[in-house]
Design a protein around this nucleic acid. Structure first.
Lengths: 278, 278
DNA sequence: CCGCAGTGATACCCGGTCGGTATCGGTCCG
DNA sequence: CGGACCGATACCGACCGGGTATCACTGCGG
């Protein structure tokens, strides 16, 4: 199977519409239809059910969609990592990615401590939206990431825990609940005038605009438009407009350093060692 | 990047010789040279150093070799798993692979226990040479494997431990050491007339023929041509011609059940649950 | 009931590129 | 110095991927 075929199939499987998929791929619809037919013929397996007015995946199609995404990630990673190895050398530069606003003091300490090490490579810090980091790690755009359990998916990644924080509810200053010693998740969720928001990557439901990072979310809280439950390390970002109250039954958040499984770079190994020693 | 290019590059990188690589790929040498040049141009990175009489990998080439193998495995896995999903349905049949002669009683118990479960799928047991199992798991030919730590590489696989065994030295019956209560690795290794052999996949050095499975190895031991250090569960295979003595400083061997990380099949989940309950 | 919009399949053509053969150019060895 | 070895280059033909035009089928609205 060629990656072109996989890309085509993924497009159709995601759009469930040949015309739109073709547009997205920048080709015309007939060659796309033909490519998918060829793929099905060669695999000897129907992948799509073409009912008039609705394309759906077969069982085998669903399997291929999942596997094809992983395979394409692996191919992209091969390309990216080779390019980077050629440009910077195997240890030329480390790309460290983390969510905007998360674990910022830890990040600062880590970057400083690493820079002081013998044989450290230059580190490029990339901040991205929640949910994007794992993908960047998997497709080779990044070498290493700070992730947060239990929120991020670390399947297929090597992981070392760094620190664990309890979570606090962040409320607008002066809110009735803000004087409490402690709260429960249910209580926070129960405040009718302050929808409890989490930073999420995938778009919310009708009218709900997804919040993409912690700073955005804190701004909303400061404006009295939302509440949030976040690791206690956020208080570095809190202003007079915020109040933080521990949430007793929220799960603890573990910040971990994560990297692709088959990574072998000594510079990366040193970074991980530095991180775990902090 | 297309998988064809990756396959070509892997062939050249492994052979370090364009002519042989071309033969292995079933094409002529000129198109292969051209394809590699195109790849290097598109990546903007030299992958190979063509010194007269010797092709060698650059740093970037070494990175691409490693990444390309992983990517090609992922693509093959996508193809195999889709085919199997189409033929047997998502849960139609489980392919369980393990090394010839290893953990045989455990395997028998597992297969029986699983067959007795509600909703079990037919299980096909495949026996293969040491070192082949992980590859079969990774490229989709198998769904699940019995592996042995610390010998097998479980990177990128989900794993559940099943049982742990001490290791014993297997000697020809009547050998001087065979009456001892216990031995050390050094002692076993020190017996000049009995080379200590391990079942390994990769070929040995000059004249050393690699032993590919436990049965072969035990036959050699019975003939007084070798000694071996193996998990104590082998005594099911021992005959009058063998003697087993515990080895005090050999690492314990843990038999684990392993499966690809993104597997979702309920039949597989049931098998794993059955295995851990044994 | 007919016509039209929507959607995937088919027919057909063109051009790029992949693969083949022949040959070159450089190096090492006898 | 000549020949073997090995990768690069030159050139050609055939296949296939992509484009346009059109068909075939369905479902809906007037």
């Amino acid at each position: 199977m060629e990656t072109r075929e996989l890309r085509y199939f993924v497009a159709v499987a995601e759009e469930l519409h040949f015309g739109r998929a073709a547009t997205r791929l920048g080709i015309a619809q007939p060659p796309l239809s033909r490519a998918i037919q060829q793929l099905e013929r060669r695999l000897g397996v129907p992948l799509l059910v073409r009912a008039h007015r609705a394309v759906t995946l077969t069982e085998a199609g669903a399997v291929l969609l999942r596997e094809a995404r992983a395979a394409l990630d692996a191919v992209d990673a091969a390309e990216q990592r080779t390019r980077r190895a050629g440009r910077d050398g195997v240890d030329g530069r480390l790309v460290l990615v983390t969510k905007t606003g998360a674990s910022s003091e830890l990040l600062a300490k880590l970057v400083d401590a690493y820079a002081a090490e013998e044989g450290a490579a230059p580190v490029e810090v990339v901040l991205c939206q929640a949910g994007e980091q794992e993908r960047m790690l998997r497709d080779g755009r990044a070498d290493v990431a700070l992730l947060h359990l239990p929120f991020d998916d670390v399947e297929g990644l090597e992981v070392e825990p760094l620190e664990t924080h309890r979570q606090v509810a962040v409320l607008p200053a002066g809110h009735p609940l803000s004087t409490r010693e402690s709260l429960t998740l249910a209580e926070v969720r129960g405040v009718a005038d302050l929808p409890l928001r989490f930073p999420t990557y995938d778009g919310g439901e009708a009218g709900e605009h997804a919040v993409r990072d912690v700073t955005q979310l804190l701004q909303l809280v400061g404006l009295g438009r939302a509440s949030a439950v976040l690791p206690e390390s956020v208080d570095a970002f809190l202003s007079d407009a915020h109040a933080a109250v521990p949430v007793s039954d929220a799960p603890e958040v573990t910040t971990v350093i994560a990297w692709p499984e088959l990574a072998t770079s000594p510079a990366l190994a040193l970074l991980v060692r530095t991180a775990t020693r902090l």
